[in-house]
Nucleic acid binder design. Structure first.
Lengths: 358, 358
DNA sequence: GTTAGCAGTCAAAGCATAAGAGTGCTAACA
DNA sequence: TGTTAGCACTCTTATGCTTTGACTGCTAAC
């Protein structure tokens, strides 16, 4: 994107920032006299009108109709966000809530994703979507197959960030000990492989297996089948978890249920969300209004950050709100969550050697 | 409730049923001429007006204002529902969807509850609430403690209807084998006890333990601590899982987001929901309008059924909609879900002896 | 008991008017 | 050249009034 823009005078910048801030708070168009009160007691409203007019001509503001106040454009919000970044005040109450969630952390990856979405949504008062991105890139650390009384068995795969769990049908004729031995064998073979590698290489592996452990092949085949359905399920519904969708109704711009429903529908549509979340986002980033590649969301904004392990995005977290959303508060929440996530990961790695001893 | 009511003439009954049915479909007040079209081509509208007038006097119908059509009262809906019960047409499409959910059933109780709520809500198009009621009355069949690499351990308790799982802190100094032995001991001791019994009797049990297995007491204490937090958590948020809250916006009576939000708030309030779900409901039952003991829901209806094991309600399922909801379809869905649940239970019991052999 | 017919009622829609909030523009001033 | 006062202009919103049409209630006759 070329920087051909004539840069704004100091005063215009200040006026624009005040205007956007005011609109974010009040949700009603900014008037020249409001700016006068907030920022420039020494200037007359007429002067400010001239400035506002200029800002409008440059595309930072727009009017809904002649004789109405101004409203920021996507470009206006973008300016505001850019000049705000790096200066994000952390909201203590929000941080506390999030921290508490991580304290009583769940070990199951699936559950964790839901809790993260819930807690962010609660803290920010906006709908939050979490998309598992590189699920199959997770690194296997330990595999356990646990036969149940119901004729099923539980597969527990510890990875470098949380446990993946699924159930499979178990065969009554196979003794319990075989499941334990099979688990150990799987762990030894695929420790430090990714989940997708395990799924891919398993058939080859089964073929080459020593004849003495051939009896495990049934188990392994079932494990892979179960993992395949799990990943299929995830890719089908896109690994998307949305929470707090209703909070959208709190904001005046979506108090019309029709509008709100339209957006909420998009939130559960894997294809659209995938498009929005396609680019990785190591830092907190914003997609503002027209920058969002989905038609229905063109008057929303999305705050995003990825949870990354070894530079790879495992999950994308996104907060959806009106363009007029409280960027500072939201950035603060997101930043903190991703940070806590990183802590968790450190914890997992710390204990890694411990596990190897067995 | 005394049956002091003068009973309705055949014709009045028929008119009332037609009226309620029509209102459920169209959501607009019933007029005398609508009834004439649907039911009584041979009668004049004037006659029907007389009848409607009588039904209003008896409290089955009411007018929003003079010169408007009639709308059923709670009493009117109640009459409709009572005369409909026992004659519930099963909606094939709905049943199919529910059945598919049960096919790929989850083994975790917590997850299962969420899925049930989702699938019913999707099938009926109304918000659905599931409340775990007698969670601690579940009968323990098998206990497994599984140490993880992260310095935590997973507690898996198989019960007579699903797995309860929670994590606990594990002690690095305790060898893996001890966890396995401790699990077996727990299973042997508490098999066929309820969860609450286990929590209650554990301290006594630890005291009386042979000195040779005294080393397990640390493990057992941690297990109980973890189970306590789990049950505390559940009772705190009341074991309530709501899904599809948004569907409320689909119905014209709650297209006002304020109204909808008010109701949705109640759905996540454990105290209010507990009150609504207080009475056990072995069969599908309805609470209609004024019959609901919560002020905010007095113009809703709730369809309910319990999932019971050995005559005890384990979970209550409730579907919330406007009084004008499609009782037949909803009853069909509920009935079917509870039935499939019962099948699951049968499956679990079938395999029971299998598990004992180890 | 049933019915035709007519008067009466009320909600909803349409229209005109008035009020009010802001801007744009011009002309004058520093 | 930047700033300002002042006034005309625009457009939204609120309000009241009127009309329309859908129903019912009631009466009198069958």
């Amino acid at each position: 994107m070329p920087e051909e823009e004539i840069k704004l005078s100091e005063r215009k910048q200040k006026i624009l920032l005040v205007a956007v801030e005011d609109y974010i708070q009040k949700a009603s168009p900014i008037t020249s006299s409001a700016i006068q009160h907030k920022y420039a007691k020494s200037l007359s409203t007429a002067t400010l009108r001239n400035e506002l007019n200029a800002l409008e001509a440059m595309g930072y503001l727009k009017q809904l109709h002649t004789s109405s106040g101004r409203v920021p454009t996507s470009k206006g919000y973008r300016f505001y966000v850019n000049s705000m970044m790096g200066d994000i005040p952390l909201d203590k109450k929000v941080l506390n809530e999030i921290h508490q969630m991580f304290e009583k952390r769940t070990v199951y990856l699936g559950e964790m994703v839901g809790e993260i979405a819930s807690v962010i949504s609660k803290a920010t008062n906006y709908p939050t979507v979490v998309m598992l991105k590189g699920f199959e890139k997770l690194v296997i650390k330990n595999v356990k197959i646990i036969p149940l009384l119901t004729g099923q068995a539980l597969i527990l795969i510890e990875t470098n960030s949380g446990i993946i769990s699924n159930s499979m049908e178990s065969d009554e004729k196979i003794p319990q000990q075989s499941y334990i031995d099979a688990s150990n064998l799987l762990t030894k073979t695929f420790c430090n492989s990714t989940v997708s590698d395990m799924i891919k290489n398993m058939p080859k592996y089964i073929e080459k297996m020593d004849s003495e452990v051939k009896e495990f092949s049934t188990i392994f085949t079932t494990v892979i089948k179960s993992l395949r359905t799990l990943t299929d399920n995830l890719t089908q519904k896109g690994g998307i978890t949305a929470r707090g969708e209703l909070k959208l109704l709190n904001t005046p711009e979506y108090s019309d249920p029709q509008k709100a429903k339209q957006i909420i529908n998009v939130l559960s549509n894997p294809n659209e969300i995938k498009e929005v979340f396609s680019e990785d986002s190591a830092e907190v980033s914003f997609q503002i209004g027209s920058e969002i590649p989905v038609e229905e969301l063109k008057d929303c904004s999305i705050a995003r950050a990825d949870y990354q392990v070894d530079g790879k995005s495992i999950a994308s977290i996104g907060i959806i709100g009106p363009q007029r959303m409280d960027y500072a508060k939201i950035a603060s929440a997101l930043k903190f969550v991703v940070g806590e996530f990183q802590n968790l990961k450190a914890l997992t790695h710390k204990e890694e050697k411990e596990g190897d001893k067995k």
